[in-house]
């Protein structure tokens, strides 16, 4: 009996750290702001000379919209860089077409600043990537529900990393707040391509693992570590059954 108790407590102790990875609070609701709103149809000036409106640009292919400003010393650079890397890795263009619009939300940014940015990221000749500015940036960020705040001391905007998905009709179908993994990005690309996503988890600082993780390969949600915890009792049961049999056989022979 003692051995049994010991055994169970060891098992319990292994479950505990696994579970602590699941810790979460209520989740950040700001990701839900203005979903399915039609975004403001702003006239855009794109690097390379074209002038189109946001909705016209979206008509061909739905858009992944990244809101940045060129002098940012914070999250903007990693946001664009990760977006580039993740999209390259996911390689979705055939199956779920999209284009990427990197738009400055800084009224002082000029088209040249964005041109310079595109060059820095080595994205000037990349098809499906657009860099641009607009004169109606306030209307755009209002319709997205994005609120950068100018910090006079630091001479920087205090703002979130934000990606927004825009459907071909100009509607915002999904937002991603913060720097997110490729799984979440795939969900965003699906949503602008009209794929119904019945459920998802709100982002938190600590939510790295979930009960069910989203598999970027198949696009299906695959059982993650959480499911293992559910299977564990069954495994322990069988180990116990086999263990008992081995123990009693030794005694009787």
């Amino acid at each position: 009996m003692f051995r049994l108790c010991l055994f169970t407590s060891i098992v319990m102790l292994t479950i505990l750290p696994a579970q602590s990875l699941f810790s979460q609070s209520l989740g950040d609701f700001r990701e839900e702001i203005n979903i399915y709103n039609t975004l403001y149809d702003a006239p855009l000036h794109l690097v390379g000379g074209a002038d189109v409106s946001l909705h016209e640009l979206a008509k061909d292919k739905p858009i992944i919209l990244a809101l940045v400003f060129s002098r940012c010393s914070g999250v903007c650079n990693p946001l664009v860089l990760e977006l580039k890397e993740n999209l390259r890795m996911l390689n979705l263009q055939q199956e779920l077409p999209y284009s990427v619009l990197v738009l400055s939300f800084d009224p002082w940014d000029k088209i040249e600043d964005m041109q310079y940015m595109a060059e820095r990221f080595n994205l000037t000749n990349e098809p499906d990537w657009y860099f641009g500015v607009t004169d109606s940036i306030n209307q755009v960020i209002n319709s997205v529900g994005f609120k950068p705040i100018w910090d006079e001391k630091k001479k920087q905007f205090d703002h979130d990393a934000l990606l927004a998905g825009v459907s071909t009709k100009g509607k915002m179908t999904k937002k991603l707040l913060g720097l997110r993994n490729s799984k979440d990005l795939r969900m965003l690309v699906q949503s602008i391509n009209k794929v119904f996503i019945p459920s998802y988890r709100l982002p938190t600082n600590t939510s790295i693992f979930t009960c069910f993780n989203y598999d970027p390969e198949t696009g299906k949600i695959v059982p993650g570590t959480g499911l293992l915890i559910i299977i564990m009792p069954v495994l322990i049961t069988w180990l116990t059954v086999i263990g008992i049999r081995m123990a009693v056989r030794k005694k009787t022979t």
Partner: peptide, 12 residues
């Protein structure tokens, strides 16, 4: 300090 996940707990 330790908060559980509602979905996992419901499954259990």
């Amino acid at each position: 300090g330790f908060i559980n996940d509602a979905l996992l707990m419901k499954n259990l």
